[in-house]
Design a protein around this nucleic acid. Structure first.
Length: 816
RNA sequence: GCGGAAGUGGCGGAACUGGUAGACGCGCUGGACUUAGGAUCCAGUGGAGCAAUCCGUGGGGGUUCGAGUCCCCCCUUUCGCACCA
């Protein structure tokens, strides 16, 4: 209580100046971009947050500050920067929370947004709040529904009965990517299979383009890799196996190893395969039915996690087109309906899963590839899956061929007899956008007995989500909206007969798949995005966000952009020119989460240290793209730096000190720092940029020297992206009237940054023995002479030098 | 299993195309100013040694005048994906 507030010793009172400058920014519209007229637009986008009730946590702030620094830097480079921020407020997360606390999301979300906005503003972000949006606003989701209708119109949205992941706890369908290890990503409940009629987007039609475009994107390599893996391109062949039973049925299979076809001793169908029923012979029918029932009942977790092989014989056979032999057709749940054709040719000799299955059921195992030193008769103790040096055996005229060669030769042979063809297969599935929940935009479809599924006319959008008290999902697999007849009863837009609205809502990922298109056009009601504005501002120059969205959000928004481009709405087909994933802030080595009780709320830190110090600390604790451990101990370091900056400007602007001449060495260090900070910020190497400024501060104040004005003024500009409030205040103190953010970046003078003498590293036999201070442009002979003057170096040179390595300006190595 | 990233002081982390390893910060030690300081400032701080010097970037080899950095083989951590045919 009698502690002297720190501000009294330095005069730096963060709370006061931060409030002051936020007020001035607001009054002067400093952060508002000139959307219509910007000559040099720069769109600095960050992933928008879900406005949770707990409020903003430092992880969010870390990302936003990182983006803000980049945006402010671009502004200092002369660009017209647009930095919008909105809220991703629909979705199960909000809905579940609303259910938990017993409050309606339509009340809860606006409260959360107010709180979020307050917290975000305190951080001093250069956000243009006049262009904010919330996905839950009908003015926004009207256009989300419009996007759906465009896809529908172009045949890219379709409805199908599909096995879906059902979370019995959240009572909803989950996308494949929301299922983690067979369990719900949100509540860890084992996921079940259900068959529901769902809306899908044909993203798989775009698989190849989504993959190849990656090569020309300036994105974090890790993110591109994740997308490539997710798309899962795999080259192989489709091979057709004619069934010997039944009426001329054929079974197509996908394989990446057509070279092993002579070893294909049986076929396996997924239990859900549509041909199972007609292929099964009467003798085996009851056994097959039993197996199908069993696997249908089984939840996805056990099915996908147990590698124990189960299965049943159908009684049917097919002909191997290579060997001409009849091989049995089996059913097993190790074959997945959603990949390839839902059927495989089993080659137990060269596939581990097939080997295991064949071993369990006593099916024949034939070797068709052998390694060096093996031959056709070498017994197989397990599947031989290496293909590098493999040579074919037991494969008729293909014997002796290497695997790679045989792949194409065999596909060619099969193609010639119309038994197969080369094919590319993708792991990427179509995007299921139906959600049997309440808290999302209703899918704009009306079902009419006469006309079928009729799109809601665009003029009738939005289909407003009604306020209903009972929004809790149930076990029916139907959306809560299906319980509200007054809402879903509607006239068919085509024939005017009584019809029924689609009662499912769409996936939140659809909301976020196009939001970046909307920001610059916020406030325009006639179109989702104005063509002129869009052309001026997009694609996004810089996008920063978490790698947890590396596949889903980023892939979906790329897809929607491509689709809108192909329809003629956009002049570009990739939404983000540059993407960088930020790291994760952890606490005591583990991810921050409420359950661990280690969530750090920014407010208390901002109260104590100020937003500027807190921002700077977040950027200093580790590489931005890697994140780091939050430990409050080292905030004092950056606070001290700001105190010293404050004091330096104070000293430099004191009466009578204005004319002090800058020191040559200090100015050299200053220019080195200008270069370093200017190089580091675009690379998002914020931690080293901060370090460089601290280093300069040490030079500036070394030995308690009093800094000159020219030595400190540029530092205010350098620090401004990191600590915007104090920078504005100091800029004002230095006598400027406009915002520091309109002052430009300090000029770098390479002559002033260069030392005329350097300290040359001298090695003897590769070991560093000292340094000599010499002229920058010294030649080799003079350098050797200078080095030999130093007894501490010369004593290691025992004989005449055999060799001299001289790197001008850097190093001298005398090899004796 | 497949794919990615990473192992550097007591701690967080620096180190551009191979060229003084440990910048910067925290912490610690000593000092200055002080009634006092958990404030501020100055200096020091990888390990061993009185010193000259030696040893040091997960481990082991290699290339090189010179390796944290390049190559090969291991070990560990971590994050994605995972019966994907």
């Amino acid at each position: 209580m009698n502690a002297i507030p720190h501000e009294e010793t330095t005069g730096y009172d963060p709370t006061a100046i931060e409030e002051k400058w936020r007020r001035i920014w607001s009054e002067h519209r400093t952060n508002i971009a000139d959307i219509a007229g910007a000559a040099d637009p720069f769109y600095a986008l960050m992933m928008f947050p879900y406005p949770s009730a707990e409020g903003l946590h430092v992880g969010n702030l870390f990302a936003f500050v990182g983006n803000d620094i980049y945006g402010r830097f671009q502004r200092l480079q002369g660009h017209n920067v647009f930095e919008p921020l909105g809220y991703d407020a629909f979705g199960i997360h909000s809905e579940n929370y609303a259910l938990k606390v017993g409050q309606h999301p339509m009340e809860l979300i606006p409260q959360n947004i107010v709180n979020f906005r307050r917290q975000l503003e305190r951080a001093g972000l250069m956000v243009d709040w006049t262009k904010s949006l919330a996905t839950t606003d009908p003015d926004y989701y009207k256009w989300t529904q419009w996007v759906f209708l465009q896809l529908l119109k172009h045949g890219l949205a379709y409805k199908k009965q599909a096995a879906v992941n059902w979370c019995p706890s959240c009572k909803t369908v989950l996308a494949n990517e929301q299922v983690i290890g067979g369990a719900c990503e949100r509540c860890d409940t084992p996921v079940e299979q259900r068959f529901l009629s769902q809306w899908f987007f044909r993203i798989s039609d775009y698989a190849e383009r989504l993959l190849t475009n990656l090569d020309r994107l300036d994105w974090s390599e890790t993110t591109k890799t994740a997308q490539r893996n997710w798309i899962g391109r795999s080259e192989g062949a489709q091979i057709i196996f004619p069934a010997t039973t039944g009426g001329g049925d054929v079974i197509p299979v996908f394989t990446t190893r057509p070279d092993t076809i002579f070893g294909g001793t049986y076929l396996v169908l997924a239990p859900e395969h549509p041909m199972v029923a007609e292929l099964t012979s009467s003798v085996y029918k009851s056994a097959v039915d039993r197996y199908l029932a069993l696997s249908a009942k089984q939840d996805v977790v056990t099915r996908k996690s147990s590698t124990e092989k189960t299965g049943v014989f159908t009684g049917a056979h097919a002909t191997n087109p290579a060997t001409g032999e009849d091989i049995p057709i089996w059913i097993s749940d190790y074959v997945l309906m959603e990949y390839g054709t839902g059927a495989i040719m089993a080659v137990p000799g060269h596939d581990e899963r097939d080997f295991e299955f064949a071993s369990v059921f006593g099916l024949p195992i034939v070797r068709v590839v052998c390694a060096e030193g093996e031959d056709a008769t070498t017994p197989l103790s397990g599947a031989f899956t290496e293909s590098g040096n493999g040579v074919l055996v037991n494969s008729g005229r293909f014997d002796g061929m290497r695997v790679e060669e045989a792949k194409s030769a065999i596909v060619e042979m099969l193609t010639a007899k119309s038994s197969g063809s080369p094919i590319v297969n993708y792991r990427l599935h179509d995007w299921c956008i139906s959600r049997q929940r309440y808290w999302g935009p209703p899918i704009p479809i009306i079902y009419c007995d006469e006309c079928g599924a009729v799109p809601v006319p665009e003029d009738d959008l939005p289909v407003v989500l009604p306020y209903v008290e009972d929004f809790k999902p149930d076990d029916s697999g139907m959306s809560p909206l299906a319980r509200h007849e007054s809402w879903y009863r509607v006239a068919c837009p085509k024939c005017n007969r009584m019809a029924r609205r689609e009662t499912d809502v769409s996936d939140t990922f659809l909301d976020s798949a196009w939001y970046f298109l909307r920001y610059p056009s916020v406030g325009i009601d006639e179109v989702p995005f104005d063509p002129g504005i869009t052309q001026r501002w997009l694609p996004v120059n810089s996008y920063i966000g978490g790698n947890e969205h590396a596949v889903l959000h980023l892939l979906y928004s790329r897809f929607v952009t491509m689709v809108l481009h192909d329809m003629g709405f956009l002049g570009f087909d990739e939404p983000y020119r540059r993407f960088r994933a930020h790291g994760l802030i952890v606490r005591n080595g583990s991810k921050m989460s409420k359950s661990r009780g280690n969530v750090v709320v920014p407010d208390e830190y901002i109260d104590k240290w100020g937003a500027d110090a807190f921002r700077m600390y977040l950027m200093f604790l580790g590489p931005f793209e890697e994140g780091g451990d939050f430990r409050d101990a080292s905030i004092s370091g950056v606070k001290r730096f700001l105190d010293r900056l404050w004091a330096s400007v104070g000293a430099a602007t004191d009466q009578g000190s204005v004319d002090r001449a800058p020191d040559r060495d200090v100015m050299r260090k200053l220019h080195q720092t200008i270069r370093k900070v200017g190089d580091d910020i675009p690379r998002l190497s914020y931690n080293t940029a901060v370090a460089a400024m601290m280093e300069y501060m040490n030079v500036l104040r070394r030995g308690e020297r009093v800094p000159a004005r020219d030595e400190v003024e540029p530092v205010v500009q350098l620090v401004s992206p990191f600590a915007p409030h104090i920078a504005e205040e100091l800029w004002e103190k230095l006598g400027h009237s406009g915002s520091v953010f309109d002052s430009g970046w300090p000029a770098f003078d390479s002559d002033r940054a260069t030392d005329e003498t350097i300290s040359l590293v001298v090695q003897v036999n590769g070991k560093t023995r000292g340094t000599v201070s010499v002229a920058r442009d010294i030649g080799q002979d003079d350098a050797v002479a200078a080095a030999m003057q130093e007894p501490s170096i010369a004593k290691f040179v025992t004989g005449p030098p055999r060799k001299i390595i001289f790197v001008p300006g850097r190093l001298l190595n005398i090899v004796a």
